[in-house]
Simulated assay, not measured.
Amino acid sequence: MLRVGLLGAGRIGNVHAKAISTHPQSKLIAVADVVKESASKLAAQYGVEARSNEAIIGDAAIDAILIATSTNTHSDLIEAVTKAGKAVLCEKPVDLSLARAQACRKAAAATKRPVMIGFNRRFDPNFAALKAAVDRGEIGKSELLSITSFDPAPPPVSYVKVSGGLFRDMMIHDFDMACWMMGSLPQKVTAIGTSIVDPEIGKAGDFDTAVVTLGFADGRIAVIKNSRRAAYGYDQRIEFLGSEGLLSAGNVLENTVSKATKAGVVSAKPEYFFLERYTRAYSAEWAAFVEAVTSASAVPVTLDDGVNALAIAEAATLSAKSGTTVDLASVMK
């Protein structure tokens, strides 16, 4: 039985608490949060203790810690938890600073403790099935990847100001997805961004709408489209074109009912947001972490993956602001 401490009792912390508590081989022991009322409420819901971060990290009876705190704390907590000899599953991104994330990777590697980064979309059943089909060669040689990721509504500007920006906060999931699907890192990153959904986001120095093109060494291309607003719901789609066909994974709808009349065919909207859309993915992600830790096997999403996605986000930010294509190697050195 994997005994687990949870750092962070906000929206995503609640999702992880459920995944931990419902898995047959893990047990939630304690919860912490900077807002003590949030920690106490979540702890009471699962019949566990509310403690401080330090108390949880220092508890020898806890085997693993899930970090679901604010991004600016991730690197410090990863280092503290691994130094304490515990396994880590940390929400993305590793840090807002690429240099800090790289330093964290070095420090964590020295402890030889497993660190997994929470890119939950890899564990979505539909995306995982598409990836498996690509790897089996079902569309021949893969050539062009298209990823669409639209949020239903923009976040508050107060959140935007501390999030690290659209590329580090939102599109970083898609950067990881592109690398995973392609099986390698891109060489070149070209980005264009604008703030047409909410001008206040632009005034805060960020974008709410962006397109990024990733160029790979073998000539393959990935195109990623992000928007902070899709009035019809959470739009999450992937298309992969190959030499012998096309693979696509569409949206998960609110229900499977459709109405067909002479006026046309109508179906339900996509699930509203990520909590609904990726429920199964979060459970599968946690199950993969538990399996890796308890069997002493490699975690499926590494700290290297987290640093790589952050490097692409950094390159995209530079490209969008400069209007030029950025070599990823120049950012990662």
Rank of each mutant, 00 (worst) to 15 (best):
V4Q: 01
N14R: 11
A19I: 00
I20T: 00
Q25P: 01
E37F: 05
A44V: 02
I56R: 05
D59W: 14
D63S: 11
D63G: 12
L66P: 03
L66D: 04
V81I: 15
V88S: 01
D95G: 06
A101P: 14
A101N: 06
A103V: 11
A103C: 03
A103M: 10
R113S: 10
M116P: 11
F127Y: 15
A129S: 14
D135Q: 13
G137I: 00
E138M: 09
G140V: 05
I147L: 07
I147Q: 12
S149G: 00
F150C: 08
P155C: 06
P155H: 15
V162T: 13
V162P: 07
V162Y: 13
G164P: 08
G165Q: 06
R168I: 12
P186K: 13
Q187R: 15
T190A: 12
I196T: 03
V197F: 05
D198T: 03
P199T: 08
P199L: 13
V211R: 07
T213S: 12
G215W: 09
D218S: 04
I221R: 05
K225M: 15
S227W: 05
I238W: 03
E239N: 13
F240L: 13
L241D: 13
G242T: 13
E254L: 15
V257G: 06
T261V: 03
K262H: 04
A268V: 05
Y272W: 13
E276P: 15
R277F: 12
A281Y: 08
A281K: 08
A288Y: 14
A288M: 06
V290R: 02
E291T: 12
S295H: 03
V301G: 04
V307D: 09
I312M: 05
I312L: 10
I312D: 00
E314I: 06
T317Q: 01
L318Q: 14
T324P: 07
L328H: 10
